[in-house]
Computed example of a mutant assay.
Amino acid sequence: MSSREDETLAQAAVAALTWQLELAPKPGLPDPRDLGARTTRQDHCSLRWSAKALTPGLAAMAAAARRTGHPTPELRAELGAIGRSTEHSVALAGGGHRGALWALGLLVAGAALNPRARGNDVAASAKRIAAHADRRAPRRPSRGSSVSAKYGAAGARGEARAGFPHVRRALDALAAARTAGAPEPYARLDALLTVMSTLQDTELLYTAGPLGLRHVQAGARGVLEAGGTFTEAGRDALYAFDDDLHARAWSPRGSGVLLAGALFVDSLPVVVASSVRAA
């Protein structure tokens, strides 16, 4: 891959994150409706702005994977160092997206490591990188790792080491909804709810505990069982679920991150084709 293609992969990942932010209504998550709400406008605007600050770091991760050529411990350490530097840049741009940087960084590196990979193969490539420990990472436990240890949840690290099973589930949900004739926004919302229905979200476990997590999973399943977001009954269930999570101030952020990962992987055939034409 060339440096142009590394940049293209990074831009595709940021575009996928932006697509996730633009979806509405997303139960418990920031969406464009927040632009009209004075109390949340800064949060949503800063998320959209700071997403762009991920681009240089993600391009550097792609370049590191392309240069290394193998999922080695050294590559994992380099990706970690790039990630920590990028976190600092994103903080200056408004903050947020730490979880997205972790997931998208591994998926971008996986795509750069295996340029012909598509779909599940990209997740498998990222899995081989995540299998190595980051020997240079700070030793202090993160909130996510502490919650994972307390409740036995896989967490972000476990999701990556398992080959991003919820990214793969979201890809399947996207394909099924499209085949059923759902317009793209509804297909993406159904994919989000599919992830939300089974993900052991450590953010939710921290704020709402196991009972809260199961409540959110059941709510997501309820929308899908009502027919999905493209049906009238499904949309009614979606709005009720969204109102419920906002009233409780519960935010299933991990599901949004993994949907962004799925949208990035889903876009790769188009991304690669456009890179070839530009070369």
Rank of each mutant, 00 (worst) to 15 (best):
S2G: 05
R4Y: 12
T8P: 06
T8L: 03
L9N: 00
Q11D: 03
L17H: 04
T18I: 10
W19C: 05
L21E: 00
E22M: 08
L23I: 00
P27A: 05
P27N: 07
G28A: 00
P30N: 08
D31I: 02
D34K: 02
D34H: 06
G36C: 00
R38Q: 08
R38A: 14
T39N: 11
C45Y: 08
S50M: 06
M61D: 01
A63D: 01
A65L: 03
A65G: 06
R67P: 07
R67M: 05
H70E: 07
P71N: 01
P73V: 00
E78G: 00
E78C: 05
G80T: 01
A81P: 08
R84S: 03
T86R: 09
H88Y: 08
S89G: 04
S89C: 09
S89L: 10
L92W: 03
A93Y: 06
G94Y: 06
V108R: 04
G110Q: 02
A111H: 10
A112C: 05
A112F: 10
R118F: 08
D121A: 01
A123L: 12
S125R: 00
A130K: 14
A133C: 11
D134H: 15
D134C: 05
A137K: 04
G152E: 02
G155E: 14
E159C: 05
A160R: 13
A160W: 12
F164I: 07
V167G: 12
L171A: 03
L171W: 11
A177R: 06
G181W: 13
G181Q: 12
L189T: 13
D190F: 15
D190W: 15
V195G: 09
M196D: 06
T202F: 11
Y206Q: 03
G209L: 06
G212Y: 05
G212D: 03
R214E: 15
H215A: 11
V216L: 01
Q217I: 02
A226W: 14
T229W: 09
A233V: 04
R235C: 04
D236Q: 14
A237W: 11
L238G: 14
L238S: 10
Y239D: 09
D244V: 05
G254K: 05
V257Y: 14
L258G: 09
G261Q: 01
F264I: 02
V271A: 10
S274L: 09
V276L: 12
R277P: 15
A279N: 14
